[in-house]
């Protein structure tokens, strides 16, 4: 083992590493974005006030029960198990021939969605009640209140948690090697199968993982600052006494 070895492996296998890293990024970006929207949707549906009676109450209660079950099940089981069950299960039980990449997107998305749903719920709960009341007082309904007042604040507040999910996804897509998705971990394993240099090859993989997560973290920080806007505002003209 040596530095030279690492260079040699990198030079020889860089296209495989690159493709693996690309696949990892693709799956984790797609999964995080779709999961984010699933989470928003689930969070908003669960925030709809339940009417006191009527058919609507029943429908809403059923939907909520279903959504709660979804969140609990996907948060309560490992993604590696979910991947296996969904991929092989859909083939065996339903006769579905899902291609691996579709399965990968699906699994990461709905897994992330379950976590994001809870993050969004927490985000909505943490918004001051006065914001809802002020929106209602100008005549906004629940949807208008959510879209124009609450969600923009929620999204800003949950951005760090979303970034965290993204970083977790970059690392956890490695479990998708159980269904032979050619992401970075799978590629690294293939390379090791050829050269038997476990340390050097996986060392390269770990550097690539770290570079990806670190970059993502920086980009998200930048985004947060961007959303916050400037610290100061400009007064137009001279302040007058009222």
């Amino acid at each position: 083992m040596s530095f030279e070895q690492i260079i040699r492996i990198t030079l020889k296998y860089w296209p495989m590493f690159l493709r693996g890293a690309g696949m990892t990024l693709l799956i984790s970006i797609t999964g995080t974005i779709i999961g984010f929207f699933i989470g928003l949707l689930v969070g908003v549906i669960r925030s709809v006030p339940i009417p006191e009676s009527g058919v609507k109450k029943l429908i809403l209660k059923c939907i909520n029960a279903f959504l709660n079950a979804y969140v609990e099940v996907f948060r309560g089981t490992p993604m590696i198990v979910q991947a296996t069950v969904i991929y092989y299960g859909s083939a065996q039980a339903l006769g579905l021939d899902m291609d691996k990449l579709t399965a990968a997107f699906l699994i990461v998305s709905i897994n992330t969605g379950a976590y994001m749903a809870e993050i969004v719920r927490g985000g909505i709960v943490s918004i001051d009640k006065g914001q809802f009341e002020a929106a209602h007082a100008v005549g906004m309904n629940h949807m208008q209140t959510m879209v124009n007042v609450i969600l923009p604040q929620v999204i800003r507040n949950i951005l760090p948690a979303t970034g965290n999910e993204f970083v977790i996804n970059i690392k956890d897509t490695s479990v998708l090697n159980v269904i032979s998705v050619t992401e970075l971990f799978f590629q690294t394993k293939s390379i090791v199968g050829n050269n038997y240099k476990y340390f050097e090859t996986f060392f390269i993989a770990s550097v690539i993982y770290f570079v990806m997560t670190f970059t993502v973290t920086r980009i998200l920080r930048y985004l947060e600052r961007k959303i916050d806007g400037p610290e100061n505002f400009t007064v137009i003209g001279n302040p007058v006494q009222i």
């Binding site: 914001q131 009341e133 002020a134 007082a137 100008v138 124009n148 604040q153 800003r156």
Partner: peptide, 17 residues
């Protein structure tokens, strides 16, 4: 109906966003 009543709260409740 609510648009016909302007409400001013003790805690201001301006839209923070």
């Amino acid at each position: 109906y609510r648009t016909k009543l302007g409400m001013v709260f003790q805690q201001f409740n301006l839209f923070n966003n």
